[in-house]
C-alpha cells in the first residue's frame, strides 16, 4: 500500500510536470504561433498607447524577452525554490511554492489561490453533500420502482437538471430568492466569521450546482442499482430472510456505490479546480472566478496557477479514488 502510494505520487508529479509544460505551451507558445509577439504580451502591462521604450522596459522586467524554455524553467524553479520579483525600489520574495506573480493584480498567485480555495471548497463541499444525498436517494427510489410516478418525475427533473444551464437556473434563483424575496444574501462571508451567513449566501449556489450534479448522480445511481439489484448476491441476501430495506441498502447500494465513488472523486477534483460558472454567476470570490478574471485579463501567471492547481486536485482525487476503491472493493489490489 505504502509503496503503491509512493509510486503513484511520483507518477503524479511527472504528470503535473507534463500538465505545466502543456499549459505553458498553450498560453505562451500558441499566442506566438498566432502571431502574438512578446511585445504585445508586454504591452498589456502598459497603459494607453505604449511606446517602444516602455515595451522594451516591461519586457525585460517580466523576462518576456527570454526564450520560452527559459521562462518555463524559471516558472518550475519558482515552484520549487521560490523567486524574486522586481517591484521597483525593492524586490518581492515570492515564497515557495511560487506560482508566479501577477503584475496586473500586483499579487502573487499562490496566496491568491490559498485565499480563494476556502470559497471554492465551501461551494464544492456543500453542493457535493446535497447532490450526493439527493441524487443517490432519488436514484435508489427510482431503481426500486422503475416506471413508477416517482421514477418518471425524478428522471424528468434529472433530465431538466442536466439540460438547464447553470447561468439560467442560477440567475433565476438569484432573481427570485435573493433580489425579489430577499431570503438569501449575495456577499460571501467566510465560515469562520459567520457560519449562518456563510450558509445563507452559499445556499443558492449549492442548490444550483447540486441540481446539475444530483441529476447526473440520480441517473447513475438508478442504472447502477437496477444492475446490482438483479445480481445473484441480492437473491442470496433475500434467501437469508433479510428484510428488503436491508437487502437494498446493505447489499444493493453498497455494490452500486463503487462507480459512484469514482465519479464523485473526479467531480470533486474538478470542482476544487474552480467552479467557474457557479462562481461567476453568484459572484463568489473563489478559484473559478479568479480563473475567469485571469483569462479575460490575459494574465498568464494566474492562468498557469489555476490550471496547475486544478490538475493537482484532479490527480490527487484520482489517487484518493484509487485507494478508496481498494477499500470499497476488496477484490481490487493496489500494486
Amino acid at each position: 500500500m505504502i509503496s503503491y502510494i509512493i509510486r503513484r505520487t511520483i507518477a503524479a508529479v511527472i504528470l503535473l510536470l507534463v500538465v505545466t509544460a502543456v499549459t505553458f505551451g498553450i498560453f505562451f507558445l500558441l499566442p506566438r504561433l498566432a502571431g502574438q509577439t512578446p511585445d504585445q504580451l508586454a504591452a498589456q502591462y502598459i497603459g494607453k498607447n505604449p511606446s517602444p521604450e516602455d515595451i522594451a522596459a516591461v519586457k525585460a522586467n517580466l523576462g518576456l524577452d527570454k526564450a520560452v524554455y527559459e521562462q518555463y524553467w524559471d516558472f518550475i524553479k519558482g515552484i520549487v525554490s521560490g523567486a524574486t520579483y522586481n517591484l521597483g525600489p525593492t524586490t518581492a520574495k515570492c515564497e515557495v511554492p511560487c506560482f508566479g506573480y501577477s503584475f496586473k493584480n500586483h499579487t502573487e498567485v499562490w496566496p491568491q489561490l490559498v485565499d480563494r480555495l476556502p470559497v471554492t471548497a465551501s461551494l464544492a463541499a456543500g453542493a457535493a453533500v446535497l447532490w450526493l444525498l439527493s441524487g443517490v436517494a432519488a436514484g435508489v427510489i427510482s431503481a426500486l420502482k422503475p416506471g413508477s410516478v416517482f421514477d418518471r418525475t425524478a428522471m424528468g427533473v434529472a433530465l431538466a437538471g442536466v439540460s438547464l444551464p447553470m447561468f439560467f437556473t442560477g440567475q433565476l434563483a438569484l432573481l427570485v430568492f435573493s433580489y425579489q424575496l430577499d431570503i438569501f444574501g449575495r456577499t460571501y462571508v467566510p465560515f469562520t466569521e459567520n457560519p449562518s451567513q456563510w450558509a445563507n449566501t452559499l445556499f443558492l449556489p449549492w442548490c444550483s450546482l447540486a441540481l446539475l450534479y444530483s441529476a447526473i448522480y440520480a441517473r447513475l445511481t438508478r442504472s447502477g442499482m437496477l444492475e446490482t439489484m438483479s445480481e445473484d448476491f441480492i437473491r442470496t441476501a433475500r434467501a437469508k430472510g433479510l428484510k428488503e430495506r436491508k437487502v437494498v441498502l446493505k447489499h444493493g447500494l453498497r455494490a452500486a456505490l463503487t462507480p459512484i465513488v469514482t465519479v464523485f472523486g473526479m467531480d470533486i477534483g474538478l470542482l476544487l479546480g474552480g467552479a467557474v460558472i457557479t462562481e461567476s454567476v453568484f459572484s463568489l470570490p473563489g478559484i473559478g472566478q479568479y480563473a475567469v478574471q485571469a483569462i479575460t485579463d490575459n494574465d498568464l501567471p494566474p492562468i498557469l496557477g489555476v490550471t496547475l492547481l486544478a490538475a493537482f486536485f484532479v490527480v490527487l482525487c484520482n489517487l484518493v479514488v484509487d485507494v478508496l476503491y481498494a477499500t470499497v472493493d476488496p477484490r481490487v489490489r493496489l500494486s
Binding site: D232, F233, A237, A239, G241, L242, P330
Partner: peptide, 25 residues
C-alpha cells in the same frame, strides 16, 4: 415467508462467486 426463509428453508445457489457479496467477508 421471509421469516421462514433462511431459517426453516435455505438455498444453495449455482455459482457461489456471483451468489456471494463480493464486498463482505
Amino acid at each position: 415467508v421471509r421469516r421462514l426463509r433462511g431459517r426453516q428453508m435455505a438455498m444453495i445457489f449455482q455459482d457461489p462467486l456471483s451468489a456471494m457479496h463480493p464486498y463482505y467477508t
